[in-house]
């Protein structure tokens, strides 16, 4: 298999990732238009109906249309992932760049603390944070965001150290540029690319964590549909309505796989060294 075949395969994976992510994001944005029913409309007479022409994916234990709820749940996933990854990205960039730029004790203290946060299992840290913040969707976003900060800060620190070795930074210091100006004008633009690439990969993990928290009843609260809480409530009725245990899972799978593939593809694209190593 030649190099062109490899890159064709890679771009094909990128394409599949793009299609899946597009599907999820479009569902999130146009949920009101696409979904055939309201995700909240209860119709007890129609409960636990198998997939049919009226309800393509069947109905749940309250007779709500499963397809409509699955589409609307994409909104929660995308919203939580976007906020959480942004929190992680901004927090991590601030800490990582500060640590690398000022070095010394500031670097030591900040990065030791990041290492410490990193040593907790992610889902456990999220649960403990939810205990402090209280269980709600907003707090789930904050908790997941905090989990991402150490990873982004490491990356930002490494990238900043790389930039700091360049001659133009030395030149900027020599002409008397202020720290703030150097940080915003010279360093930030040069470290932002790897952070954004990492952000795409973090999206997949954020979708997974949100679903996990909602599954445990700590994220999105019913009747608001989230893939996690749909799966959790549906699992009690699986012997009568197996689709309740399958449909939300496939949606999660598509979301996570899509963001994973897109993240991998972008990483390869922006980091040719990685491309060769593989």
């Amino acid at each position: 298999m030649g190099p062109s075949a490899i890159s064709w395969r890679r771009s094909r994976l990128l394409l599949i990732g793009g299609v899946f992510v597009g599907l999820v994001i479009l569902s999130a944005i146009f949920a009101d238009v696409i979904a055939p029913y309201s995700p909240y409309d209860i119709d007890v007479a129609d409960k636990l109906q198998p997939p049919s022409r009226a309800h393509w994916l069947g109905t749940d234990e309250f007779g709500r249309d499963l397809l409509s709820r699955t589409i609307h749940a994409a909104r929660i996933s995308v919203k939580v992932a976007t906020v959480a990854v942004s929190v992680g990205l901004v927090g991590g960039a601030l800490i990582g760049i500060t640590a690398a730029y000022f070095g010394g004790p500031i670097d030591l203290v900040l990065m030791r603390f990041m290492e410490l946060l990193f040593s907790f299992p992610a889902i456990l840290l999220a649960i403990v944070l939810m205990a402090a913040l209280g269980t709600s969707l907003l707090n789930a976003m904050a908790a997941i965001g905090i989990i991402f900060i150490p990873g982004f800060s490491r990356l930002a620190r490494a990238a900043t150290q790389e930039v700091l070795r360049q001659q133009y930074i030395e030149a900027a210091h020599t002409i008397g540029m202020s720290d703030r100006r150097i940080l915003t004008r010279e360093i930030l633009p040069n470290v932002i690319t790897p952070l954004l690439v990492e952000a795409m990969a973090a999206f997949a993990y954020a979708v997974l964590l949100e679903s996990s928290l909602s599954f445990l009843g700590l994220g999105a609260q019913p009747p608001e549909p989230s893939w996690g809480n749909m799966l959790n409530s549906g699992r009690g009725f699986m012997d009568q309505a197996p689709w309740l245990g399958i449909v939300p899972g496939i949606a999660m799978f598509i979301g996570v796989l899509g963001f994973n593939l897109l993240g991998d593809g972008l990483r390869d694209f922006f980091d040719p060294r990685l491309r060769e190593a593989q």
């Binding site: 997949a204 799966l231 699986m238 999660m252 799978f253 996570v256 994973n260």
Partner: peptide, 21 residues
């Protein structure tokens, strides 16, 4: 790649559906 995108709690649900129910 596929296995990496399957949430463990969904796999658990599917396993229960198939092997237990």
């Amino acid at each position: 790649t596929i296995l990496g995108a399957v949430p463990s709690f969904w796999l658990a649900t599917v396993l229960i559906l198939i092997l237990a129910l």
